[in-house]
Design a protein around this nucleic acid. Sequence first.
RNA 1: GGCUCCAUAGUUCAACUGAAUAGAACAUCAGAUUUCGGCUCUGAGGGUUGCAGGUUUGAGUCCUGCUGGAGUCACCA
Length: 591
Amino acid sequence: MNIQNLIETKVKEGFLALYEIEIPTVEFQATRKEFEGDITVVVFPLLRYKKGNPTQIAEDLGNYIIKNVKEINRFNVVKGFLNLVIDDAFYSNFFNAIYQQNNYGFVSSKPEEKSIMVEYSSPNTNKPLHLGHIRNNLLGYSVAEILKASGKKVYKTQIINDRGIHICKSMLAWQKFGNGETPASTGLKGDKLVGNYYVKFDQEYKKEINQLIARGKTEEEAKKEAPILLEAQQMLRNWENGNSEVTQLWEKMNGWVYDGFNITYKNLGVDFDKLYYESDTYLLGKDVVAQGLEKGVFYRKEDGSVWCDLTDEGLDEKIVLRSDGTAVYMTQDIGTAIQRVKDFSDVGGMVYTVGNEQDYHFQVLFLILKKLGFDWAKQLYHLSYGMVDLPSGKMKSREGTVVDADDLMIEMAETAKSISEELGKLDGYTEEEKSELYKTIGLGALKYYILKVDPKKRILFDPKSSVDFQGNTGPFIQYTYARIQSIIRKADFDFSNPVSIDLHEKEKEIIKILETFPEVVQQAAANYSPAIIANYTYDLVKEFNSFYQNVSILGEENKDKKIFRVQISKKVGDTIKLAFSLLGIEVPERM
RNA sequence: GGCUCCAUAGUUCAACUGAAUAGAACAUCAGAUUUCGGCUCUGAGGGUUGCAGGUUUGAGUCCUGCUGGAGUCACCA
C-alpha cells in the first residue's frame, strides 16, 4: 500500500472518530516547496461534510494522524492546507524495496483481460512519409507501449491505403513518362520514386487544365475534363475490374513503396503486429449495412442510398451506402472494425491514431458501431492529434513545402554529430558505433520534441529549435543517462546490497519523484498521453542533476552513503531508460 | 452560416482534471568547476492566463456572450 492510500484511510478514520462523519474521498497534492512537508491534505473540500474553521479541522486531523501513522511525526497547517512531514525512514525503506525491481512502474498484463488494438500510420501508397506521419507514428507507437506498460495486451496495426484514384495517378504518370525507371535503375527509394510521379501527374494535369481554359472552357469544366484525369479514372475502373495489366503495375509500384516505407519505419523504430490493406477491406461493411437496415439502425432513401440518422445525438444524417450500392469510407471503416475483432477475438477495444481533421468522422463511426450493438464499441478511442505547422505555415505536398521524414532524420543525426564531435567522450568508438550513436541522439531530439507536447495541440515545428540539445530536450535527458553510466562504470565496489543511512535532502526529493512513477504510467495510459511520460522524465532528470551538482557521489567518504548514492543514481538511470522506452527513445552509454 | 477544437512570460511548453504567491525550458542578465562527464548547476528580471460577465469558500480549469485562429459540414478518403 502506498503512503498516500495509507494516509487517505487514516484521514477518513480520523474524520469519523473526531466528528462522526463519513467522507468519500480525500484530496491530496504535493507540498509546495516553500512549506515544510511532503504531502498535503487539502481541507477545503471537507467543509462540505463538516462546517467549520478549516484551520481548526486541519489541526485536529493533523494531531490524529501523527498519533496513528507511524511514518508521520510532524505537521503544519497553512490556511486550509495540512502539510504532513513523512519520516525519512519511510523513503529509505521504500527505495530499498524498489531498488531490485526490474521493471519498476510497469504492470504485466493479466490473461483474463481483453486486448487493445492500436492503429497508427496508415499511409497512402502514392508518396513518401513526411513530418505529419512522423507525429502520427511516434504517438501511435508510444501510446501502444504505454498501454502495455500499464497492464494491457496490445496489438499494433495499420491500414495501408493502397488503392483509389490517388494511387492510379502516380501509376499513370509513371506509365506515360517513366521510361521504365525503377528504384534499382535510379538509386531512389521506392516511395520517393513513386512520389515523384504523383507530383508529375499533378504538373501535367495543371498543364492540361490551362490548355483547356485557353480554348474557352471554364476552370470547373477543365478540371473535370482534362484527359489525363479521365485516363486515371479509367485506370481505377480497370483496377476494380481486375484488369491484369493494371493489377500488375499496381503490385509492382506498391512493392517499391513498401520497400521504402519499411526503411523509414525501421529508422524511426516503429513496428506493427498486423497489417491491413485497403484493397482487401474496401468492400467490407456492406453486409453489415444490410443487417443495420433490418434492425432499423439505417434507412433507405428513394434513390436507393442508405443513411444513418444521428440528429437525435446532435449530429447530421450520414450516408453509409451510395445509391449505386457502392461503399463509402464510413462503410469500409465499419466493416474493418468488425473484421479486426473477428481476426483477434480477444480484442476488447481500439485506438485510432488519426489527425483531428477527422474528429467528426470518428464521432460518427463510434456512434454507429454502438447503435449496431457491438459490446466493444464502448471501448473505442480516437487518438486525435493536432497538425504540425512549419514557421512558414502549413505543409502542402503539392507545393513542395513538406518536410520529408527520411531527410529530417538524417539532418537530426548530422546535428548530433557536429555537437558530439565537439563535446563527446567517444574515445575507442568505431566509426560505425559513432554513426549509430548520432542516430540515437538525433532521433532522441526529434521524438522528444514531438512527444512532449499534448497530442491534442498543434505543433509548430521549428527546425532550428528542435535541434536544441539543452533544457527540456531528449539529448539533455540522454546526457544525464550517459553520465550516470559513467559513474556506474567507475564504481569499483559492491553496491548490490541495501544500506541504511540518513537521507540527504536531494536524495529524498529524488525518491519522492521515483515513488510517483507507477502512477504516472497509469495516468499516461488513461489519458493516452506520451507527454505525461516526457514531462515526468524531465522532472526526474532535473532533480538528479541538481543532486549530482550538490553532493559528491564517488568522492563521498562514508562508505554506506557512497553505496547509496550509486544505487540512487543507478535507479534513476534505470527509470530514465524505462520511461524513454515508452517514448520509443533509446539511451546511450556514452555520448 | 451550423457544429467541434484552440488561445497561458518575448518564444516553446506545464499546471495532478476546481485549491496556497500560475510553473519549467529557450533567449536576456548575474554567478558556480584545483570535483564523479560544464550538453551541468545556482540565482534575477519577465504574466490582468484573448476580452466581458456569471457559478463557487475558491476559477487558467466550469457556464454564457464576444474577439481572434484552426478544423469540419461531399453519394472524397
